[in-house]
Design a protein around this nucleic acid. Structure first.
Lengths: 205, 205
DNA sequence: CTAACTAAACTGACCAGTCAGTTCAAATAG
DNA sequence: CTATTTGAACTGACTGGTCAGTTTAGTTAG
């Protein structure tokens, strides 16, 4: 479950980046399992094989660690979504590929997905602004993909673009998590197909 | 935000039921906002206008309170979903009505929805079994509605029933919560339409 | 040499759960 | 009709423990 660099944080002493990486991995795992409030800084430090002081040397606070964790995860997800090139020229196929990427991400970083759905709709929350920003970055990408479909197919304009984005975005998280938690036998393709039903219902018959 | 009786718990001294009700309402609100781990029993007691001891008199533990809270909420949601009578004879219309009921529920009890998505995919969790049971009760109802559609329309059999249930179920929560948190201007109808796109993509053109 | 890290002790706030005691409405007795 | 008893419902101070964050003096690696 390695979270390779996605955000290229300026070149700082190698040790620091390695340490931050270990802390990201450890805290992602623990927080995904037991929730942000349910995990102690001592546990995170221990799981990362690092002392507590190091956590505070690298991050200002537990809250700050989690905020950076959220950005880190979204950077990775975004990179994957953007890696989808619409080579075939069919925007529906591109959409399919993107949802596939999302499913892979959920399977690889289920803890991130759990953290996201656990804290995303909390109000007020310490990470409200972080979530708002990250959410809109993600919805932008999905919105562009829908835009692509709308440009090349006859679509049901009575369906609001925003609600559609939300439904797809949300379905990716929920279907991905449900697969991991309750239905491990479900295949990636089945999951993608179910979510793609939204798009097929969006384009006119 | 009153949670009227849904489960008709045997006739017990009036005071206790009233107290439990107040505790349900108060804890639903607080836990929905700050998460199960982020709320103290003292706060819940204070918000319900009751002493801490009363919480422990009525519930065995904080954990037990939350488990009962989950059941309580699901009872209400189930009652609403089941209130949809397929009077028109069109299973797609029935589906539409059910999703509408779900949207109303999410708007009325957003805190329940937040609690659900916050804790549902935690593993291991104190409420794992509770969630598994409640989840299957809910999916059963949605599954029956899909069954109805499949019986009367030509449907894309390549889409797995289970994944479809999950996608719709999850989309209801996510779209409902997103509306409340980020897009209050979105109408109930827009939300229902977006989710119904899944169903329209499921039936053959 | 110095930034990164360690180890361990410490502070102050917070919190789940307990328990001895109080309230009061309804039942029973006189 | 009044006095007494009962017990379910409730109270809130208290206990034992936890945890975020700080500090400090020393160690390691680049």
């Amino acid at each position: 479950m390695s979270m390779q660099e996605a955000g290229e944080k300026k070149l700082r002493p190698a040790r620091t980046n390695a340490t931050k990486q270990k802390l990201f991995e450890a805290s992602m795992e623990l927080i995904g399992e037991r929730g942000a409030a349910g995990v102690t800084v001592d546990e995170i430090a221990a799981a990362a094989g690092v002392s507590k002081g190091t956590v505070y040397y690298n991050f200002g606070s537990k809250s700050d660690l989690i905020a950076q964790l959220l950005r880190h995860g979204v950077d990775i997800l975004l990179a994957r979504l953007l890696s989808v090139k619409d080579s075939s020229g069919d925007p529906l196929a591109a959409m399919d590929a993107m949802i596939g990427q999302a499913m892979d991400f959920m399977a690889e970083y289920p803890s991130f997905a759990r953290l996201w759905v656990s804290e995303n709709w909390r109000t007020p929350s310490e990470w409200q602004d972080t979530f708002a920003e990250l959410r809109s970055r993600l919805l932008e990408v999905i919105g562009a993909a829908i835009e692509g479909v709308a440009g090349q197919y006859d679509v049901d304009e009575s369906i609001s673009r925003g609600s559609l984005e939300t439904a797809i975005f949300g379905a990716c998280f929920v279907v991905g998590l449900d697969r991991q938690t309750y239905n491990p036998e479900r295949t990636r393709e089945q999951s993608v197909a179910a979510i793609m039903a939204i798009m097929r219902g969006y384009v006119r018959k």
